[in-house]
Amino acid sequence: MSIDLDLLKKLTQSYGPSGNEKNVLEHIKEEAKNYCDEIYFDNIGNMICKKNGGGKKIMITAHSDELGLLITHIDENGFLRFVPIGSIKVENCLYKRVEFYNGFNGIVGIEHLDDKKDIKFDNLYIDIGAESREDAEKFVKVGDSAVFKGEFFTNGSRIFSKAIDDRIGCYVALETLKDIKTVNELYFVFTVQEEVGARGATTAAYNIEPDLSISVDVTSTGDTPKSKNTVVSLGKGAAIKVKDRSIIVNPKIKEFMVDIAKKYSIPYQMEILELGGTDAGSIHMTKGGIPSGVISIPTRYVHSISEEIDINDVNASIELLKRVIEN
């Protein structure tokens, strides 16, 4: 199966920090509109693409937001102070380029420190080339948010970009939506504000109350030098989640997904993530409890401006999601 690199580039390079996912959702809506019976937005901002059916209600989620920076103060010399939106390592911010909603750019700088071990977000600022507060406010205001800039490029079967987390999940959901045939009633939910606590998934699950939910997100790998002890690697197939900090997947769901992978000869690997979580963490505890599973795309350098995935894992994830829904 070939991969639509133009679409994936459009998704990853779109501006969409938590709380301001409009641009990304518009791209997804344009791509999905001919493949579903209804598209609507809920009160928190999730976009739901519904395919009518008479069987079980199945919800598929992928989060549309990315990490970002929120401007809290502009000093008299025009330097912008900020707080992170989502889980960002402070050292990953240094001298990185950022972009605001209006397309204006800046770079993250740092105050002089005698010992770089003392670095905190309080020591960082964004330089947009302004000479005063008044000059800066022509382009950026307190309350505006920015995202990191990271070029999209490929090298063989590998894809590199910012915001692969979780625009690749959105891509997998979209490609499944285009090709799925089932009697079940499907809700493809492109959630908002996952990076700040899976907030969109919480409200979507409460409103839809599906019989089954499958989330599609990225997961870290253990295939780089001196990496953490995990068996997930690039190029070895879709990752079926066993556990992360937000969920222990119901054994019936996990085993069902493994059986489907085996039945259709889909490359797969088992995933245990020590840190982090996904939409499924909120979904599975909604109301009386919703059976939930997760398909993860192996990704190197998660939460950086240069995340890396393998096309073969993407294709395996699409095929696994499709077959799980059909069965």
Rank of each mutant, 00 (worst) to 15 (best):
D4V: 03
D6K: 15
D6F: 09
K9P: 04
K10G: 05
T12I: 06
Q13N: 11
S14I: 02
Y15L: 04
P17Q: 14
N20A: 15
N23Q: 15
K29P: 05
K29V: 08
E31Y: 13
A32D: 05
K33F: 14
N34V: 11
N34D: 15
Y35K: 12
E38R: 15
N43D: 15
K51N: 11
N52V: 11
G55A: 08
I58N: 01
I58F: 08
I60W: 01
L69N: 09
I71G: 01
H73D: 12
N77R: 12
G78I: 02
G78M: 03
G86V: 11
V90R: 06
N92C: 09
L94A: 07
L94I: 14
Y95T: 11
K96H: 08
F100N: 01
G106I: 00
I107F: 10
E111H: 08
L113I: 10
K120G: 12
K120A: 13
F121M: 05
N123I: 09
N123L: 09
I128L: 11
A130E: 03
S132E: 10
S132C: 11
K141I: 11
G143F: 12
S145Q: 14
F148V: 06
N155L: 12
F160V: 11
A163Y: 02
A163M: 05
A163R: 04
I164Y: 00
R167M: 08
R167I: 04
I168H: 02
Y171M: 10
V172F: 02
L174K: 00
T176P: 02
L177R: 05
D179K: 14
D179G: 09
T182D: 08
N184H: 15
E185K: 14
Y187T: 03
F188H: 05
V189H: 07
F190Q: 10
T191N: 12
V192S: 03
R199I: 06
G200A: 10
G200F: 01
A201Q: 10
T202Y: 10
D211L: 02
S215T: 15
V216D: 03
D217G: 07
D217R: 00
V218W: 07
T219S: 11
S220K: 14
T224I: 14
K228S: 15
N229L: 14
V232K: 01
S233V: 13
L234H: 02
A238D: 00
P251G: 11
K254C: 06
M257L: 12
I260D: 02
I260Q: 06
I272M: 04
L273R: 08
G276N: 12
G277P: 06
A280R: 00
G281A: 09
G281W: 01
H284N: 13
M285Y: 13
S292Q: 07
G293A: 04
V294L: 06
I295A: 00
S296A: 14
S296R: 03
P298N: 12
Y301L: 10
V302Y: 01
H303I: 04
S304M: 10
I305T: 13
E308D: 04
I309Y: 09
N312M: 10
D313T: 08
A316M: 01
S317L: 01
E319R: 08
L320T: 07
R323D: 00
I325R: 00
